[in-house]
Design a protein around this nucleic acid. Structure first.
Lengths: 248, 248
DNA sequence: CGGACGGTTGACGAACTTCAAGTGGAGTGG
DNA sequence: CCACTCCACTTGAAGTTCGTCAACCGTCCG
C-alpha cells in the first residue's frame, strides 16, 4: 500500500528536458541555481499512486518524464479523471496543504520536486516563477473548460475522437512536428482509463474505437498503437472546428 | 446586435462591495489608488452579451454585482456552460487577446474594468495583484475539475442537486450565513441555462426538479424561489460527502 | 497448463433525449 | 375586465444512446 519511492540523481537544470516549458521556464541562470539547491527527483513505477486524495502534501513539482493522471472518486466508486499530467506539467498547489485528487503514475514517472515551504518562499522573491505558474494555471483552466464541453455535450464517438486528437497533438508537439496529415502515436492509457477520462464505460470506449477503425478514421497495430491517416477527418469526428481552434 | 453599454460612475475602492474578495483583495492603500486611476465601470442589462467568443478583448475586470455565464458553443448549436461568474469573479486573461468563450449577463450586471495594457503593466509591478490572481485562478481550476465529475459521472438527479448545493452555498456566503439546516434562495438561471450548465436538456431539468419537489428534498414558491428544508439531505442527493468536502 | 489481465462483442434494459401538446403567469390591447 | 399572446416551464409518449451483464479472445507469466 505504501509506495516505495526511488530517489534518482538530479540532472543539471540547464540540461533538463522540460527546461523551456516547466514552471522554471522563465528563470534566469541565478534563479535556476537557487532552484537547483532545493530540488530533488523522485521516481514512481507505473501504477503507483503519487498522492492520495486528502493526504497532506509537503511538496510540489513538475513531471519530467512519464504520464500521471488526476482523478476524483465518489464514495460508491464512480471515478472521473480530471487531468492528464504530461512532462512539464505542474503538480500541487502553493498555499494549500492537501490534494483534492488522487495523482497516479500511469507509466513510469520521474518528477522534479520542491519542498513546499522553500518553494513558496522562493515564489515570493521570484516573479518569474509566480508569473509562469499563473500562465500555466490559466492554460490548465482553459483545458479543463474545453473538457467540460466534451463531457457535457459530446457523443461517445465524438468523445473518443476528441481524446485521440489531444493525444495526437501532444505527441506531435513533444516530437516537434506539426499536427496535420498522417499521424502515428501510442495510447498511454488503458481502455478503462480512457473511460474514466471521458465519462463512459470501458465497453463503450472499446465499441467506439472499433467503430472508428471500421470507418477508416483510425487504424490500430495491436491494441495501443494508433495510425490516423487524416487528422482533419479526425477533427471533424471530434466535432471541433477544423482550424484547430487556436486562441489568439 | 451591438450591445450598448452604459457607463456608470465608479465607487471608491474602499467602499466597494467586493473589495475583500476580488483581484484587488490584497492591495495596500497606495496600490488601490493606482488601480483607481485605471478602472472604469460598465453596466449590462440582463441578456446582453459582454464578450463574444473569439472577439478581441481590450479589458479585464471583476464582476461587481449580478451574474454572468461563460459558455462554449459547437457549430451545430450544442452549448455548454463552463463557468458561472458571481460578484468578485474575474473576467479575462492577462497575456491573451481574445476570449475563447461567450460571456453573457444573465441578470443586470455591473463590472469593474481595467484596460488590459495598463493592468498588465500594473501586475508586473504589484505582486499582491499577481498573487491574488493566481490564487483565484487555482480556485477556479478546482471548481472546473469538480464540475467535470458532475458532468462525467453524475445522474440527472444528482446533477440538479449539485447545482442547487452550489447556488445555496453561494447565496449563504454572500449573506454571511453558514450553509446548514434550512436554506432559501432564488434560482438565477432559467431551466435552459441550468441544462446548459449540467449537460442536460431543459425537459430533463424540469422533470428532475419536479421529482426532487415530490420527494420533499426541496419546495418551490413560484418557479424560481427555492426552499431547502434540510441541506444535508440535499448534499446526499448530490452524491457528495456530507462534510462539505472542505479542502485543507 | 491455468490464471490474470486487458480487451472485444452481444443481448438487453435503463436513462436520457426528442417531439409534441399543454399549463400558468405576466404583459398588452380592446 | 376580459381576451390574447408570449414565454418559461411542465408533462407525456416514443425513440436513441449508452450502461449493464455476461461470454469470450489473446497474451503474458508463473
Amino acid at each position: 500500500m505504501l509506495n516505495e519511492k526511488t530517489m534518482s540523481h538530479s540532472v543539471e537544470c540547464g540540461d533538463c528536458p522540460i527546461r523551456h516549458r516547466a514552471v522554471c521556464a522563465r528563470c534566469e541562470t541565478d534563479e535556476l541555481e537557487r532552484l537547483e539547491e532545493i530540488k530533488y527527483y523522485r521516481s514512481f513505477e507505473a501504477g503507483q499512486t503519487v498522492i492520495w486524495s486528502g493526504d497532506r502534501m509537503d511538496f510540489v513539482g513538475s513531471v519530467v518524464s512519464g504520464i500521471a493522471t488526476l482523478t476524483q472518486t465518489m464514495e460508491d466508486g464512480r471515478t472521473q479523471m480530471v487531468g492528464l499530467l504530461l512532462p512539464s506539467d505542474f503538480v500541487g498547489r502553493p498555499g494549500r496543504n492537501g490534494s483534492p485528487y488522487d495523482v497516479v503514475a500511469t507509466t513510469d514517472l520521474v518528477m522534479c520536486c520542491f519542498r513546499k515551504k522553500p518553494f513558496e518562499a522562493m515564489m515570493e522573491r521570484t516573479p518569474h516563477i509566480a508569473h509562469r505558474l499563473l500562465e500555466m494555471t490559466l492554460d490548465e483552466l482553459d483545458a479543463a473548460r474545453e473538457w467540460m464541453l466534451v463531457l457535457g455535450r459530446k457523443t461517445a464517438r465524438e468523445k473518443i475522437a476528441s481524446l485521440l486528437t489531444i493525444l495526437a497533438r501532444r505527441d506531435a508537439t513533444l516530437n516537434l512536428r506539426a499536427p496535420e496529415g498522417a499521424m502515428v502515436f501510442d495510447l498511454p492509457l488503458t481502455r478503462e482509463a480512457m473511460a474514466d477520462y471521458l465519462g463512459l464505460t470501458l465497453e463503450t470506449v472499446s465499441r467506439q474505437i472499433s467503430a472508428l477503425k471500421r470507418d477508416g478514421v483510425i487504424s490500430l497495430q495491436g491494441k495501443r498503437h494508433v495510425t490516423v491517416p487524416d487528422f482533419v477527418r479526425l477533427l471533424e469526428e471530434a466535432g471541433d472546428d477544423s482550424d484547430g481552434g487556436l486562441l489568439a
